[in-house]
């Protein structure tokens, strides 16, 4: 336990001094502030001057127009935070263990009475805490920026940040585990491709299962099998609710399709099965990381 705490503590201290993480953090924090202030200023200038028309030709009220802008902002914010969390996953995953193993620090560390398990656990704890802390601080900033718009979507944002952190942790563990076996740049490239494949499989699964069209049973079966072979990307209800709210403001005519049909193509909130699968994937990746560290001869 002492060993794990020492490894975690000083890995966090090292991370806090890495310029790469600091630059990413500043870019993320600046980006969120600029996005919020920019959209707010833009809407203040434009909303009184323009008219937004509904599908039936009527004009959207100023309150609804502001609501639309807020929804657009939150939608963009979710994308920015998700992207930022993935960047952090690469930055932390590529450096947290790799530099110790490659620089020779591991020689002095592993000759001390500390087990490889304690070392791997300490590194993992530090990496996860760093990820939660950095994305968490940005999440708090995002919620403060949302006050510019009157609020009301804070809950949706909080759950989506949680999902973004969970997805980023999975990717970070892939990079960490791979960088214990191979060069960290190669590890990042492999993880990037893996993340792309995972995203495509998750999106395909969503689309195929939202379609009631016949003749897709074969494709459905293949996609469903593939879906249970990759990590499930966790999603909150926010993306679907944002589209639902936007749709309800803009589309008011009698011949509009049911809103539930419209949003069925948007990923819905992850269920217990998805969360358990995510947990299992995290446990397996932690196990792989430990095996890589244990086998490593320095």
């Amino acid at each position: 336990m002492n060993g794990t705490l020492a490894v975690a503590r000083y890995t966090l201290l090292e991370m806090s001094r890495r310029r790469l993480l600091l630059v990413f953090f500043i870019v993320g924090a600046g980006g969120i502030a600029l996005l919020g202030i920019g959209v707010r200023a833009f809407s203040s200038l434009l909303v009184p001057a323009i008219e937004i028309h509904r599908s039936d030709g009527s004009t959207v009220s100023a309150a609804d127009a502001n609501r639309l802008i807020e929804l657009t902002f939150v939608s963009n914010l979710i994308s920015v935070l998700g992207l930022f969390a993935l960047l952090m996953a690469f930055a932390i995953g590529m450096t947290a263990i790799y530099h110790d193993l490659e620089s020779g620090s591991a020689v002095a560390i592993f000759s001390k009475p500390v087990s490889r398990f304690a070392f791997a656990a300490g590194k993992l704890a530090a990496a996860i805490v760093a990820m939660i802390a950095i994305v968490g601080v940005l999440g708090v900033e995002a919620r403060l920026v949302m006050l510019l718009f009157g609020g009301g979507l804070e809950e949706a944002l909080s759950l989506e940040i949680l999902a973004a952190v969970a997805n980023a942790v999975t990717l970070m563990l892939v990079v960490l585990a791979l960088s214990s076996w191979m060069n960290n740049i190669v590890a990042a490239i492999v993880a990037f491709v893996f993340n792309g494949v995972t995203s495509v499989v998750n999106a395909l699964h969503q689309q195929v299962n939202a379609t009631n069209q016949g003749g897709l049973e074969g494709l459905k079966a293949v996609v469903n099998v593939a879906y249970w072979l990759v990590p499930h990307q966790l999603v909150s209800s926010a993306p679907r609710e944002i589209v639902r709210s936007e749709f309800l403001i803009i589309n008011t005519g009698p011949d509009m399709p049911p809103v539930d049909d419209v949003v069925s193509g948007i990923p819905g909130p992850s269920g217990a099965g998805d969360i358990l699968w995510w947990l299992l994937v995290v446990v397996v990746l932690c196990g792989l990381l430990y095996l890589a560290v244990r086998r490593r001869q320095v």
């Binding site: 020492a6 000083y10 090292e14 890495r18 110790d100 620089s103 020689v107 560390i109």
Partner: peptide
């Protein structure tokens, strides 16, 4: 020898004292 490069000498020794 090499050590975590962003730490200072007393921090390295404190780290190893923890181990």
């Amino acid at each position: 020898p090499d050590f975590p490069k962003f730490l200072r000498a007393p921090e390295v020794l404190d780290y190893f004292a923890g181990l």
